[in-house]
Amino acid sequence: MAQISDVEQPYMKQIDLTTLNLQQLYTLKQQLDQELSLFEESLTSLKLAQNKFLTSNETLQNIDSDSEGKDILVPLTGSMYVPGKLVDTNNVIIDIGTRYYVEKDIAAAKDYFQRKVKFVTEQMEKIQVLGLKKSKIRDTIVEIVEMKLSEENNSTRA
């Protein structure tokens, strides 16, 4: 599952940042910057997905058995429509990914979208937590780099 976790992996070990040299610290900072921008991107696409599910769910609120037989304009292209009538308003067909579509009744469809919104929201929260942690580490690294630089300056001057 597309789960994001910050559980410590067995191959991870703790290192004392102050024991690293400047080059290593720079590399580490670069890595963290990359990860942070990746998180940023992921959050944006998750937000988009969340919106799509929310709109679909809202649209479902307007469809019930009373909608049967109502007029509708069917888009053939983005800018061309033909008139049509709604038949079978009790079921909708949903894109579940990898080119598969399933038919669901209105209640099940609502449940589907609510589940999806929940899932996406959870992932977003996890990424936010992780991002916060990473940016804290990044700040610490910057601090240590500055500390080391000023130490070096002092020693060369002395």
Binding site: M1, A2, I96, G97, T98, R99, Y100, Y101, V102, E103
Partner: peptide, 23 residues
């Protein structure tokens, strides 16, 4: 990941659920 999500969704369907494949 996408396939796993689809599989989960398919598993939730009743045995007579209608499935379509877009070609």
């Amino acid at each position: 990941n996408e396939n796993e999500i689809v599989k989960k969704e398919l598993d939730l369907l009743p045995a007579d659920g209608k499935v379509f494949k877009s070609v």
